[in-house]
Amino acid sequence: MKSSLIRRACVAAVVLAATMAPAVAAQTDDTGVRGGTAAPSDIGAKARLLGERTIPNKFTFRGTTVGGLSGIDRDPCTGEYVAISDDRSVLQSARFYTARIAVDATGVHSVDFTGTHPLLQPGGAVYPALHAGDGKAVDPEEVRVDPQSCDYWWAQEGERPKSSDGLVIQPSIQFAGRSGAYRGQLTLPPNYEILAGDRGLRRNKAVEAITFGARGSMLTSAVEGPLLQDGPEPTLQHVAPVRVTQQSRDGAVLGQFAYPLEKIFTAPDGSSTYPPDTGVPAILSYPGDSSRYLVLERTWVSGAGFKIRLFDATTRGATDVQHIDSLKGRKIVPMRKKLVADLADFDLSGVYNTEGMTWGPTLPDGERSLVLISDDNFTEDAATQIVALGIR
C-alpha cells in the first residue's frame, strides 16, 4: 500500500463486530455477523523494543535507488535478509535486495546491503513499467524465502484501473531463483481476482501479505482490504473483514478465514484530500503453529500520520469462508486476535509506513526477535526504518 495512492473514501457501515477484548464469548453485532474474541491461553504475545536504524533517503546501491521496501524475510540458508522494492520499474527495474542486518538483544547495530537483482519474466526479460501498456507490469509488495529450497516467493498486487476501459493486471504469487529468474507461480484462490463492477479485489488492496507455515508445506496469504462484495472498508465506527487463505504448495485451498481489520483510529483533520486508509500489508506464521499468525495493520489518517499495530491472531474456531461469495450480512466467526504492540508506544524516532516484517534470530533469553521495515515511497518526508522487537 502506497501513501501516494491513498484515495479510498471511508464509508458508513461494515459487517463485522470488533474482536479485541480477551476471554469473552463470541458476540453478534447489529448487522448479524458474529465476532469472536481471544482467550489469553490461546494467544497473547508480548513485545518490547530492541532498537531501530534508518537508511538514508535516496540511498544508492549498485546503480539502484534503495527505497519502497515493502517486504522483508530472513534467509535461513545464509542468515542474511531479502527485501523487495515496490518500484514498478519506474526508477529502475522491479527488484529485490539482500542485506546483512545485525540484530541482537541490545538493538539494530548495522545494515549492510550485499546484493540486488531484478525480478524476471518467464522469458528472462525484466518487468516493464505500468505505462508500457502491455499488461506485463507488476507491483511487488512481499517476499518470502522458501524454507525447503531457499528460493524466493513474491507477491504482487497487479492493477485495478480507475476507469472501466483501463487495463486490468491480475495479482500473482510467483517463485523465483536467487538471482530473480522466474520459476513459476501459485494458483490463487478463485476470489483473489480483479473483476468488473462491484466485485473482486479493490484497487491497491489486493495480495500484499504472504507467509510460509507447516515447515514450508503451506503458504498463507492475506488480501490487504475487504473484497468489494464483502462490504465497505473500516470506518471510525466499524471494523471490516479481510480474507486470509491457507494453501498447499500446489495451490489447493486448505481454508479461508475472515480477519477483522480494526476501525479507523481517529478522524482526519481535513489537511489532506486523501481519506483515511488502512489494510494488512504483512502476515507472519508462528513457528510450530500453522494456525497462529502475527498480523501487521497499517493505517494512515491526515493530521495523525501512521498507526502501526501488531496483532496475535488465530484461525482456530474461525469459519471457513472459501465457499461464501459475500460476507456481507453473513453470520460467521472471524479469526480471533489480540493486540501485541502499537509502535506509537515505543521510543522511536518516528512511526512510518511500515509494511514488512520477519522473524529474526532467537535471543539468549528465549525471545524471538522480529524485524520490521518501512516503505518510504521514494519521498523526502518518509524514511526506510528498520525496527527490531523482542517477542515472547
Rank of each mutant, 00 (worst) to 15 (best):
I264M: 04
K136P: 01
V207D: 12
R100S: 13
P232G: 15
E297P: 01
A99C: 02
L372R: 05
I308G: 08
G107S: 06
A47I: 02
P260E: 13
L130C: 00
K46H: 14
I386L: 15
T211I: 06
E193G: 01
L372F: 10
G305R: 09
L201V: 06
S285R: 08
G44W: 09
G135N: 06
Q322L: 00
A17E: 08
D86Y: 05
P56I: 04
V253M: 04
T384N: 06
G360H: 10
T64H: 13
G79W: 13
V387C: 07
E159C: 00
R7N: 10
I324N: 04
A18D: 15
D269K: 08
A155V: 00
S374M: 02
N191S: 08
A105N: 03
G213K: 02
Y127M: 02
K263T: 14
R203K: 15
P268G: 12
D30E: 12
T315L: 07
Y81W: 14
S93F: 05
G231N: 03
P268A: 13
P364H: 13
M357L: 15
I373K: 03
T358M: 03
I308L: 09
D29A: 12
T379Q: 14
I373L: 09
D250M: 03
S179V: 04
Y182K: 00
T220R: 02
H238K: 04
I101R: 04
D325Q: 11
M218N: 02
S93W: 05
S164W: 06
S302H: 10
W154P: 00
R7Y: 05
H131Q: 02
T314R: 09
D230I: 06
L49R: 05
T314C: 09
R336P: 00
G177K: 07
F59M: 08
C77H: 10
I386E: 12
